[in-house]
């Protein structure tokens, strides 16, 4: 039996019917066609499906869609705005912090949540926070550097949205 779900995705109200068994990841990808959030393991181990739920970083494969009832969801599709790419996205490109790119949306969401909590992280802070995101291509070096560089850039422009 399908159940009514009302949730806010990247600032837009969405209403739909979904199965109670469906994960938030399934609903984002299959019902709302927001395929930027990726499935890597469906088990909470890889972080490719990271999204923000009411400002908290979660693995969307481990959250039932109905748990998003009345909540704010932010996905990779909401990270860039009409002004352009988010500094994290820009720096990931400049620093070549991606190869195949399948883990990139998850890393960007995860890094964004770190920088919102801790605008000036050390390398250790970054490594600890990102340990829930698996990347098999890069060896993480350039990802960690990109997050540190983004932090620097964001803290140099205090009017940035990350401060909010």
């Amino acid at each position: 039996m399908k159940t009514y779900l009302k949730t806010t995705i990247n600032g837009e109200d969405k209403e739909l019917l979904c199965e109670p068994r469906q994960s938030l990841l399934d609903v984002l990808r299959d019902e709302l066609e927001l395929t930027g959030t990726k499935e890597g393991c469906n088990n909470g181990n890889c972080g490719a499906c990271n999204i923000m739920l009411d400002g908290r970083l979660v693995n969307s494969c481990m959250v039932l869609a109905l748990e998003a009832q009345g909540k704010q969801v932010e996905t990779i599709e909401g990270v860039a705005d009409t002004e352009g790419l988010h500094p994290l996205q820009e720096v990931f490109l400049e620093e070549a912090a991606l190869q195949c790119g399948i883990c990139t949306p998850g890393f960007i969401l995860s890094a964004k949540s770190l920088l919102e909590k801790n605008p000036n992280p050390t390398e250790d802070d970054v490594r600890l926070w990102l340990a829930g995101n698996l990347c098999r291509c890069t060896g993480y070096d350039k990802i960690v550097r990109a997050v540190l560089e983004s932090a620097k850039r964001l803290s140099e422009s205090p009017q940035s949205e990350v401060a909010s």
Binding site: R29, L34, T35, G36, T37, K38, E39, T75, I76, E77, V79, A80, L85, L88, Q89, F92, L93, L98, G101, I102, T104, P105, I108
Partner: peptide, 15 residues
């Protein structure tokens, strides 16, 4: 292909 990959628009098989 960078912008597509940092914005989630790149289409992988499952997409």
């Amino acid at each position: 292909d960078g912008v597509d990959k940092v914005t989630g628009r790149a289409l992988y098989g499952a997409d």
